[in-house]
Design a protein around this nucleic acid. Structure first.
Length: 518
RNA sequence: GGCUGGGUAGCUCAGCUGGUGAGAGCGCACGACUCAUAAUCGUGAGGUCGAGGGUUCGAUCCCCUCCCCAGCUACCA
């Protein structure tokens, strides 16, 4: 069984989970579930990035120790992922001892490689950095952030010129190797628009970056002291990025988490870190690179990019409560292409729920199970389904598969649309064959058998293929059809037959909200 | 400023390397049907394919200029 190891970005522990976090997890979860049902041995890794200055500051403002603070944030995130049905195999936290030890190990691995290099080529070296420091932000400012001698956030504070002595990482040495990587394997970063940004960056040439910090200590101590004896704190990205690599050093993890990963699912705002710094670190350490990075887009709200302030207008809880978890997952995956941005709106959510879920799919389930009960006492005829219709279905399934495990990967929204094609096509088929007319004349029994078998078979396909998107609702549909066991265990790469199942029409899968009284 | 991507029916978007009548879903209008969650099916509505110019026998798709939107332009993450 081939292995598929995918990760999401670890979420920064300085606030509550919001729609943007959810989009990434739901997308990665759908990809993971689809791969499981396609026969892969999947390992989905998610987690929290809990170090760094902002976390320490936020904890201080709330008057709690940082560890206690991140513990409560991590709890909130995990509760949300459970509620959303995220099927991760591992939840990593960068404050875990196993992670911290492994980060040290990776950095030491780079130092070990440096031992055989001449000094001017070593990856880690000490250097003084002089920059404009804003006391308000407690961080150095780049020229672009400085207007009239002050930072844009704190115009009343004067910037101070501060010199800091740090460990540096020779990122500049990786300009050429990274260019070679993209030349040999353009697909390392998808989609293409994001790749172009990185290629442009490489064209400009990379600058070295600091790998340690002196101004705060909420992090992993940098493994080697400076020549003056000071022990600094590892720069957060040298702590956060390695989580993908450190996951396998946790107790109980084995080959499924073996490095390298097959896929990093990240937001488009952090491609630079995952496609430049991270591969450079791995090259320095002599480690293999992940197979692919997928940068998804963002979801906006009311025309504005999603952020904490926008989160005030929309909490995940109310979005989930509107039509249920599965409908929320469906809406996000259906309406936000995984390679571009999308917009959230209640109007659109309602439209998608009514049209796709209630009318097209839910009603197809209702009418099909009703007819099988009415005309065949609930038993699905054992004959073959309509060959022509199923040939068309097969074409849709091929598209769905290509969208997740082929030329178009990874686009769960295309899987969703391919399966809606199946449902729509089946509704047309019903209208065309008119089973209620066939049922009136016993001479048409064989034809009616074929129609009913086709309906059950088509619905079984929908249930199995949409289970990765809507696990609970599709399990309910599967049970109404009389399918055996757990729908999430159904293999998508093998034939699915509903012959001889016993259906039981239940309550509507996607009930429409009560119409307002006029 | 530089770079990248985009501007196609009311809405969300497809349209591979240029070629007979520019498409889908939703919404809308009309019609059909009754198995079904007043659901479904069919038909239609005719959008200067951002603007202007160019190349070509012919361009939504190629080139140039301009306008508008989004993103990136590196150590907060």
């Amino acid at each position: 069984m081939p292995r598929f190891f995918l990760t999401t970005a670890i979420d920064y522990a300085n606030g509550e989970p919001h729609l943007g976090h959810a989009l990434e997890k739901i997308g990665a979860d759908a990809i993971a579930r689809l791969h499981r049902q396609l026969g892969y041995d999947v390992h989905l890794l998610i987690g929290m990035d809990e170090h760094g200055q902002k976390v320490a500051q936020t904890a201080e403002k709330q008057g709690v120790p940082p560890q206690q603070f991140v513990d409560s944030i991590a709890e909130q995130f995990q509760a949300m992922w459970a509620r959303l049905g995220i099927s991760h195999d591992q939840f990593i936290r960068t404050t875990a001892p196993a992670h911290k030890a492994a980060v040290t190990r990776l950095i030491e691995q780079i130092f070990a490689a440096d031992a055989s290099l001449p000094e001017e080529r070593r990856n880690f070296y000490e250097r003084s950095y002089t920059g404009m420091y804003c006391v308000g932000c407690e961080s150095f400012k780049q020229p672009a952030d400085i207007v009239d001698g002050t930072c844009t956030v704190h115009p009343t504070r004067t910037l101070e010129e501060v010199t800091e002595h740090n460990w540096f990482f020779r990122l500049s040495a990786y300009t050429a190797p990274l260019k070679a990587l993209f030349a040999a394997n353009p697909g390392f970063l998808e989609p293409e628009s994001r790749r172009n940004e990185i290629l442009q960056l490489l064209e400009q040439g990379l600058e070295d970056i600091s790998a340690s910090r002196s101004r705060f200590d909420w992090g992993v101590p940098f493994p080697r002291p400076l020549s003056n004896g000071d022990v600094q704190t590892t720069y957060v990205w040298f702590d956060a990025l390695p989580n993908y690599w450190t996951a396998r050093f946790f107790p109980g993890f084995d080959a499924r988490a073996a490095w390298p990963a097959d896929l990093h699912v990240i937001g488009k705002d952090i491609t630079r870190f995952h496609c430049v710094i991270w591969p450079a670190m791995l090259m320095a350490a002599g480690e293999p690179l992940p197979a692919q990075v997928w940068a998804h887009g963002f979801i906006s709200l009311g025309g504005e990019r999603f952020s904490k302030s926008a989160g005030v207008k929309l909490t995940l809880g109310e979005a989930i409560d509107r039509y249920g978890v599965d409908a929320f997952r469906y809406y996000l995956l259906r309406d936000v292409p995984f390679d571009a941005d999308g917009a959230f709106s209640w109007e659109r959510f309602e439209e998608v729920y009514n049209s796709d879920l209630a009318n097209t799919l839910g009603n197809l389930g209702s009418r099909s199970t009703a007819m099988i009960e009415k005309y065949r006492a609930g038993v699905v005829p054992g004959c073959s389904p309509d060959a022509e219709l199923f040939a068309a279905h097969e074409a849709s399934l091929a598209q769905a598969r290509a969208a997740v495990d082929g030329a178009r990967r990874y686009r769960p929204n295309e899987v969703v649309s391919a399966l809606m094609d199946v449902a729509r096509r089946t509704n047309e088929y019903i209208q065309r064959t008119q089973p209620w007319v066939l049922a009136k004349d016993p001479a048409n029994a064989a034809a009616l058998d074929t129609v009913l078998a086709t309906l059950a078979g088509s619905l079984a396909l929908c249930a199995a293929w949409l289970a990765p998107v809507m696990p609970q609702k599709m399990q309910a549909l599967w049970e109404q059809l009389g399918g055996p066991g757990d729908v999430t265990a159904v293999r998508l790469d093998q034939p699915i037959s509903a012959g001889d199942w016993t259906v039981a029409k239940g309550t509507p899968l996607f009930p429409k909200p009560e119409a307002p009284a006029l």
